[in-house]
Structures are given as structure tokens and as C-alpha cells.
Write a protein that binds this DNA or RNA. Structure first.
Lengths: 200, 200
DNA sequence: CGGTCTCTTGACGGAGTTCAAAGCTAGTGG
DNA sequence: CCACTAGCTTTGAACTCCGTCAAGAGACCG
């Protein structure tokens, strides 16, 4: 079990390749604080400043937006190997728009803004990593929005289930429904219809 | 009229501040190719690789997704001072998912992938700029998706019109409708209702 | 002007919502 | 270890917002 087996190392390696030395990664890792949470803990809350970016080592979490009716609308799900934060609040320092809640017991690494920015300033390589990371997230989000506006609920769910089978296993259905922009009752009916189609 | 009056300089300056020297900006600018297009020109097309990132100097353009029914669904609008591309295609080199079309006659600057990547590799400052640029775009997109899933069509339009009055002036209504995830007829009715509320 | 593209308006239809109630499941505490 | 409870899922029936179809008015360009 060396440093290179670390989940975070593998995450960086996917973007940076072999050019990431162990001492450099060690410096990177050293500014992250490890922490564990039970399920149903709030990592950050709407209205408070989100002070950290989180990297999940095990368990799962979800960021969501709460509208005036008090309904939760899932923004992002995060399993082990995923990054999650309220980007708006973290980078602007302003009160957060979203809440991040653990769905299962979680082990994670967290980094604050000062450490994040000094990592990026001190190392072109790390800034590059985060540029690519956010670029990929942007690309995926744009695709999701296009599908949300252009496709029907059923086909959005089918694509979601195919792309993220682990989410379907581990994330409660009412959150998946809100992620897809529909009500839990509707998702339940869609699943019922689909199981009829698959086993006629 | 110096280099610092250039629209692109001002765009970089907003992120990098005064630390951007004229010679450095000059080097940045030199890898962009200026070009003009009539209205209704396709800058890139679904199925073809998108080879450039575009920076609009004047005029307007729109990226959109076309679903199986052949309906256009606006992804992004770009006026002077905006960046636009098919991120997925540009960075992966794969066939594009979106089409980018000029809505008015356009003057723009374009940069290809090789030049983009070598700008980023050669200069930490430029990589930083693009990291912040995409980060801000991601933040805005996440907010848009949250609203799309959580709010009704009317309040989405009201917020859109308030946030982007220039778009309402210059972008055809059927594209704004698709941007908001509704049909042109519905947007027409929403506008009719709103004008009734404002002038009772 | 004449044609095409865009916007508006009306009547009808349907995907998804709302309301309500009854199962089901998993976490909690005795 | 089992019973209890709270929260999640399922299902039915009525409803509504938005979509569909259709036709006409207006705007813009060649």
C-alpha cells in the first residue's frame, strides 16, 4: 500500500499521468484534512458560506437546492472518488445557494479556500489539474441540461440509470427524481412502465 | 486606442488584474485568428469536430442541441465579450454534440486546440485565466439547472429577462423559449400574462 | 411587393403533478 | 432481537400546466 494506491493519487493521475511525482503528491495531500461523518450530516448549508471542497473516500453525499416550497432539488451526487462543493459559495465567499448532505456514512478529505488557492498558485501542474477537472464537470453538466430541456422524463431516467448504475443502487429514489426534474410519484410510475416493457 | 482597450484585454484583465503585461497579452492575442461571418452561419455543426474556441467581438451567436424530432434547444447565447465553443468536442476531439450558429453578423477571434493547449502549458497565468473562466461558467450553469428543475416556466423567464435584458432584445423568442425548456407558444402566452400584470 | 420566418391566439390533448391513502423498509430503541 | 416508528415507495383518481395542432397576423429580407 504505497502513496500511489491512494484514491486521490489515482484521481490526479487520470489527468496528470506519470508526471506527478510522489513528493509533489505528498505536498498536495498534506493540505487536506481527513474527516468522517455519519449519514444525514450537513457538510454545508444554504445561507452559510461553504468553506471547503470535499473529496469523498467512501460513502456518498448529495448537494441540493431548496426552493420556496421547501422541496429539495438534487444538483449532484458524490460517491467515493468524487469531488463535491458549493462552487458558487466556495469561490465567492458569499452565502451558499445549496446544501450538501451525507447520504451514507462518509470518509472524506477537505481543503479550504486559502490552501486551494495557494496549491494552484504554487504549482502550475495542480492548477492544470483543477482546470481539467472543472472543464469535465462543465461538459457533463451542459449535456445534462440539454437532455433535461430536450427529452422526456422516461428517456432521461433510462439514460441516467445506464450511465450511473451505482447511483440507482445507493441513492434514494426521491432524490434521483428531483435530479431528473420530476416528482417521486412520477419516477415510480416510470419505473413501473419500464419493468413492464422489459418483462412483457 | 492602445492594446489595453482591446475587448479581449479587458476580458483577461477582469480575472488577472494589472499583472497582465502588454507583451504577454500581445503574445496571447497573436495566436487568435480574426474572422467575420454573416448571420445564420454555422461555426460548428453537430457530428463534426469543433476545432475552435470563439471570442465574440461584435454580433451574436448561439449554441444549440438538436433532438430526434429536429427541435433546436439553445445551450448558450454569446454577445460581444463572450466565449463560445462546443466544449465536449473541442477538448475531446470527438464529433460535436451541438451546433453553433451566428444570429447576427459577427466579428470574432478564434483559437484552435494546439494553440490553446500551448498557451496554457507555456503560461501559468493563462491556464489560471481559463480555469477561472470555466469555473464561473460552471457556477452559472449549475444555478440555471437548479432553477430549471425547481421553478415554473414563468418565474424562470422573469429571472432570465432581468438577468440578461440584452438577450431579450437581440435573441429570437423561439430560441429563448428553448433555452428555458419550453415551447415558443408557451413563452408567448407567458409574456402576454406578464404584460397584463405589469399594466393592470 | 411576395415569400419566408417569427410571433400570436384559440381549442384540445397529454405528460407529469397533486392529493390521498396504503404498503413497505430500514433505522431506533426497548 | 424484535417491535415500533418515521420516512420512502407505490398506486389511484382528479387536475393543471404546458404541449400540440392549426390558422392567421406581423415582420423582415430579397
Amino acid at each position: 500500500m504505497t502513496l500511489k494506491d491512494h484514491l486521490l493519487y489515482k484521481n490526479l493521475e487520470r489527468v496528470l499521468g506519470d508526471s506527478l511525482s510522489e513528493p509533489e503528491f505528498s505536498r498536495f495531500l498534506s493540505v487536506f484534512v481527513p474527516k468522517s461523518f455519519d449519514r444525514k450530516c450537513l457538510l454545508t448549508e444554504e445561507g452559510s458560506t461553504c468553506r471547503y471542497v470535499y473529496f469523498i473516500l467512501s460513502g456518498s453525499a448529495c448537494s441540493y437546492y431548496v426552493n420556496e416550497e421547501g422541496e429539495k432539488h438534487a444538483i449532484q451526487f458524490a460517491l467515493e472518488g468524487y469531488w463535491i462543493t458549493d462552487h458558487y459559495s466556495f469561490f465567492s465567499g458569499r452565502p451558499g445557494l445549496y446544501t450538501i448532505e451525507t447520504l451514507e456514512p462518509v470518509d472524506l478529505l477537505m481543503i479550504n479556500r486559502d490552501n486551494f488557492e495557494s496549491l494552484c498558485q504554487s504549482s502550475h501542474q495542480f492548477e492544470h489539474f483543477f482546470r481539467i477537472l472543472i472543464q469535465n464537470a462543465f461538459t457533463a453538466l451542459q449535456y445534462r441540461l440539454a437532455k433535461t430541456n430536450a427529452e422526456e422524463a422516461e428517456s432521461r431516467y433510462v439514460e441516467f440509470a445506464k450511465s450511473y448504475p451505482a447511483f440507482v443502487q445507493r441513492i434514494p429514489q426521491y432524490l434521483i427524481a428531483s435530479y431528473l426534474g420530476i416528482k417521486p410519484q412520477s419516477l415510480s410510475r416510470i419505473r413501473k412502465d419500464l419493468s413492464g416493457k422489459n418483462h412483457p
